[in-house]
């Protein structure tokens, strides 16, 4: 019984995703084609980039709602600088820098002011959304340079540059989490903060870094998004954070902290993408997609809660 639960928790998402893939490939015209696969990869690149570091932040014991706002606000900062200087590099730097600052604000609120991370980042979400309206003067911003659109859309070996960047980020984040001292400290901080602190882990610094990395990743995703759309506009749109959180939770990362894996989050991103792609190809009403996605989250969280109870 215990083993079954453990197996379901560890590999369940992989089994389900492969099954879904095989079923769709066999039954659905236009699913398993080069073009469709390339499109899915390209479309998911932003979510992948942010979800890796969201996994890390949640393992360290924190939630970050503000990722949606960072995703909206930072490309506006980037384009503001790009418009003013005509330099793509300076624009990107400004966007990523703004993301890092936003992450640091979250980190300070959680580690210094000791505000619950969910509440703290809900509050900063409004600050960051507001920042987006301020820097854009409430209007759509477009890049001055032609090169901006190539950031996400350059083709390298058939795949877009956004896809390649996402692959690089996934690998980097996985290595960081599983192969380094920092990664171990992330798990320790989430598993038992006091024990980690007494064992010499700088738990505040670890949390701070996870917030900065996550907001930086969200900024990167936002900048790539603005390149794909050749524009950016201010909004109060929380949909990006919902997509990211859904992937992390369906991937079985424990919201209690201390457990989880990036490869499972990545698998879950594709599970959700296949699901929605399959619905689209079958021309099923998007409302049904929502309903099913909701149930998928509930199932994933129930498995987590159930196994917690079993082992506790």
């Amino acid at each position: 019984m215990q083993r079954t639960i453990l197996f379901a928790k560890t590999y369940g998402i992989l089994v389900v995703t492969v099954l879904l893939f095989v079923v769709l490939a066999l039954t659905t015209e236009g699913f398993f084609t080069d073009r469709n696969m390339r499109n899915i990869l390209d479309q998911q690149s932003g979510v992948l980039i942010a979800a890796c570091f969201m996994t890390m932040a949640i393992i360290a014991g924190n939630f970050d709602i503000s990722v949606g706002a960072v995703y909206v606000a930072t490309p506006l900062v980037a384009l503001l600088v790009e418009n003013a200087t005509g330099s793509i590099a300076l624009g990107i730097l400004a966007g990523l820098g703004a993301g890092a600052v936003m992450g640091a604000i979250n980190g300070i609120a959680v580690t210094r002011l000791k505000v619950n991370s969910f509440i703290a980042t809900l509050a900063t979400s409004f600050v960051f959304f507001g920042t987006g309206y301020l820097v854009s003067d409430r209007s759509i911003m477009r890049p001055e340079t032609d090169g901006w659109r190539d950031l996400a859309r350059t083709r390298i070996f058939e795949l877009t540059s956004a896809t390649w960047i996402a692959i690089a980020v996934v690998i980097l984040a996985s290595v960081l989490l599983t192969r380094t001292r920092f990664g171990r400290n992330v798990y320790a901080t989430g598993a038992n903060r006091e024990a980690a602190r007494l064992a010499g882990v700088a738990t505040d610094r670890v949390q701070m870094i996870t917030f900065v990395l996550l907001a930086g990743a969200a900024a990167l995703a936002g900048i790539l998004g603005s390149s794909r759309a050749i524009s950016a506009q201010p909004s109060d749109d929380f949909s990006f954070i919902f997509a990211v959180l859904t992937a992390v939770i369906v991937g079985g990362t424990s919201i209690a902290g201390g457990a989880g894996a990036i490869w499972r989050t990545v698998t879950a991103v594709f599970f959700l993408a296949f699901l929605s792609n399959g619905f689209n190809l079958h021309q099923i009403d998007p409302i049904w997609q929502r309903l099913i996605e909701g149930f998928v989250i509930l199932i994933a969280v129930s498995i987590d809660a159930w196994s917690q109870r079993r082992s506790g």
Partner: peptide
């Protein structure tokens, strides 16, 4: 409450204070 990461592997629990030397 103060010593162990109760759900983490034994190996990680033992080396928690000493990761620098394996890095």
């Amino acid at each position: 409450e103060q010593g162990l990461m109760i759900d983490r592997p034994i190996v990680e629990n033992v080396t928690l204070s000493h990761l620098r030397r394996f890095s």
